[in-house]
Amino acid sequence: MTLLKVEDLKVYFPVRGGVFNRKIGDIKAVDGVSFDIEPGETYGLVGESGSGKTTTGKAVMGLNNVTEGKIYYDGELLNADKKGQKVDIRKDIQMIFQDPYSSLNPRKRVLDIVAEPLRNYEKMSKKEEKETVQRLLSRVGLGPESMVKYPHEFSGGQRQRIGVARAIALKPKLIIMDEPVSALDVSVQAQVLNFMQEIQKELNLTYLFISHDLGVVKHMCDRIGIMYNGRFVEEGLKEDIFNDPQHIYTKRLVAAIPDIDPRNRKENIDFRERVKDEYSNSYYDYFNEEGLAYQLKPITDTHRVALPEKG
């Protein structure tokens, strides 16, 4: 059973201008995106800035108005109307943000930060609440003494753990992670990634993992969707994407990642050069006149690529 189903999602932002500041056009941040996420898997949404990956995540979370399209969670339509979000379903979806330094209110104690979703959704006595928070904190590896501290007393990695504790407070099933480790140092990043994998197994969580870092995505994700200009260019299992990329944009993205072995340097530079040539030579085979990707077409059971209509 599919946990999350996104169908032809479109999120447009109005562009205003002229003397009366009227709407004169749209920015099509997300322009017809469809994907499914199965329970327990980690689905990676990859793209560069402006690709629409974060907007997609926010739309699923209900933080953006959806212009068109449907989002189903566990078979139920989430965006039936704009206001009346189904409260009990919303509980099941939580989000973790990029910057552990600004996503926690600096004037609140950790106790209040983690207890916030509990206070919104569940009636608990002060004592119950405290016990729950303590349990959540110990689950993310923080001691009970951290409850009375403020965010600035923690390192970046620890702060991201506090964010996780808050996100899992309501026992969600799906967690949307928007660049959760981009702001962290390499060693701290490793710590947070490992920890997220652990907690996923423990609580049987499903992740929608949004990132620009292909190395991290490959490490974390089972399936991956590559976005460009608001559309998917390719989607498939991790192996499909990394071992057998079909779309020219995916090829270029994969080729751009620095190789950790300096002995391959010359090869990489040549390879990148070849991909660059291929990209400019075959650009119009892969993108329409507006520079947008075509609809995804299945090439195997798991692998879909945005290719033009003709055979």
Partner: peptide, 17 residues
């Protein structure tokens, strides 16, 4: 070096300093 996720080979867990 062992704490970064590599494209070339699969690591189950990353080393944490």
């Amino acid at each position: 070096l062992s704490s970064i996720p590599l494209l070339e080979d699969e690591q189950d867990r990353l080393h944490v300093i």
